[in-house]
Design a protein around this nucleic acid. Structure first.
Lengths: 354, 354
DNA sequence: TTGAAAGCGCTAACAG
DNA sequence: CTGTTAGCGCTTTCAA
């Protein structure tokens, strides 16, 4: 019955093709595909056969346009190759699995936040909900781009209360880490990857604040030279920063690294310099990524509450998505939630015993 | 003209809303949005103003349905938290950036390939092209699911010639790694994460084959007990496997690890056992992930040609996508390409000097 | 330079 | 139990 459109151009099989071949309406085919009731057993059977025969697959774009639903949750992370985000993504994907939704990860980039943001945010409507790991964007950026989709923010910095936001406790976490070193005898502690004197409320700044706080609380004086920038924050730059410090003749007996990844670079540098950890220099990281248990020495670090973060994010998102699909405008919902997850010190081998 | 549907339900701003407010047709608005010519300067101006005022954003789903284009490339990886895939994703995303396309990463899962496949492959039509890092799927799986989208396979195993395929040289890479240990004096080499006697042509099997090959070439006898399974392949299992081996009293003086991640676990176990690397046991990994330069000792490994893999994959995909948008059916195209990228030994500190 | 109209592939009332 | 119909929001001939 169905004449081929042309002999060379290929066209995907549509629901209409199936309907024609099975001698039923597209409605019926749709019901069969979606497992809906009110279809005769034999009709269903026949449709299924045709579907198999023609190799029909639903076009998710069309379905989405019509149904207003993608069953996909977007996750926006600054970089795709940072262990922390990979591990966060895995936790989220695992938690999402039972709900039948897929996690889809996109990179937002650390720099030029606005430009990249502009480019990627159009795409965000392809998701039922979006989780954004905020790094480069500042509050006004976020308010500007008016999202069409439920959004939950996860991350480092205080943000406008326009969005639900799960925050790790950067300040207290870093203070705990620093206090731990001070308690174990360090007196000249480098804040590796620290940031100073910015009005920015970004992650490095907040963690540096915690570093200051711990010193203040314990009455230990500070040396401004000990706050060392590390950009971008990766192993190589962590490594280089420690070497420069030593080359510059800066004396120190402890390192609070802004992230575990930076700490791992530092560990490697110290090893190369023949400086013993933790005997001569104690090191503490931040994030509690899986790698911390396998480096030598095993890295003492701050667990920002990784499991709890993932769970809370998803809980918020679930709520927003429910509101959204109920047709409530975002602004009409309850005041947005902001939760700070408590951080926890994980003592391993890179700091001394009590 | 248009009465609001209801006072409480919020609806996204559409192109129609803009058209009405700007007193032009949707056609004109569309042109303005897409930067097409044949629009008066003042008209354009007015439309732009209304767009800003109303906060209009295009609905990418609708655009995609109509235009048949998403400007997004999908990447399917087995796990989101494996450094190798994170680093691959980053390379691909970087290379894609200038083309204006976004990389979108999804997890396929290592296990239950078929089930997951069924669930996720419909979504793949949301992309203009798809890169699949094949692990769990076998050739017949792949032939079954008839893709509607250009696909390039990247990975470990021989696959049906139905798809373009960029393959790393697992066998020769592993042989090179093994030969390196043999040359440097190891005689009882563990194949950590090796797989044996399967008809499967998966990555562990292929690398194990290389391990055999090197022994054969150099006339060194093999001990079946030295092939140790590691599942799943991560740091923790690599660690545990080495401990079991030692507990079981298996004597060895070298380790070829199936991946760098497994090697890192092994390194940690050897350190705990007080076994010196490389003096007593030499270790070589596979993948050349960034971490290899920062562990202690730095890991000797095989670089499967990471940069070249990313470049080649994208080149193939570009070609397929061009064909596809030209309306050519996939099967009509030239015989599919299959390229094996040469692997290269990177000598660091976990193996002995010559 | 602008607009009318058709339709991408699908789902969901509503009839029958 | 099944089919008819009306769009989802957008792009794109084709006419004006």
């Amino acid at each position: 019955m169905s004449a081929r459109k042309s002999s060379s151009a290929s066209r995907a099989v549509t629901i209409g093709d199936v309907a024609r071949a099975a001698q039923v309406s597209t409605t019926t085919v749709s019901k069969v595909i979606n497992g809906l009731p009110r279809v005769g057993a034999q009709t269903r059977q026949r449709v299924l056969e045709v579907v198999a025969e023609l190799g029909y697959q639903v076009n998710p774009t069309a379905r989405n346009l019509r149904a207003g639903r993608t069953d996909a949750i977007g996750l926006l992370v600054p970089e795709l190759d940072r262990p922390y985000f990979g591990q966060l993504a895995t936790r989220l994907a695992n938690a999402l699995e039972p709900t039948g939704r897929q996690l889809v990860v996109q990179r937002s980039g650390v720099s030029r936040a606005e430009e990249l943001a502009a480019a990627s945010f159009a795409r965000l409507r392809m998701y039922d909900g979006v989780i954004i790991s905020v790094v480069g964007l500042n509050p006004s950026d976020l308010e500007q781009l008016n999202f069409q989709t439920p959004v939950v923010l996860v991350g480092e910095r205080p943000l406008p209360r326009t969005f639900d936001h799960v925050m790790m406790d950067n300040v207290e976490g870093a203070a705990t880490a620093t206090a731990h070193l001070l308690e174990r005898g360090s007196r000249h502690i480098v804040m590796l990857g620290g940031r100073d004197g910015t009005t920015e409320q970004d992650m490095p700044t907040l963690r540096t604040l915690g570093y200051y706080k711990a010193h203040a609380r314990m009455g230990v004086p500070l040396d401004a030279r000990l706050v060392a920038a590390v950009l971008p924050m990766d192993m190589a730059t962590g490594y280089a920063a420690v070497r420069s410090l030593v080359d510059a003749g800066v004396a120190f007996d402890g390192i609070v690294a802004v992230t575990d990844v930076v700490a791992i670079g530092a560990l490697r540098a110290l090893a190369d310099l023949g400086i013993r950890v933790p005997a001569e220099v104690q090191v503490v990281g931040f994030d509690n990524i899986d790698e911390t248990e396998f480096v030598t020495p095993r890295l003492t670090t701050i667990d920002p509450g990784n499991e709890q973060i993932a769970g809370t994010v998803l809980q918020f998102l679930e709520t927003r998505m429910a509101e959204h699909s109920a047709g409530l405008p975002r602004t009409a919902s309850e005041p947005t939630a902001e939760v700070t997850i408590p951080a926890r010190l994980v003592i391993r081998e890179s700091t001394r015993r009590a």
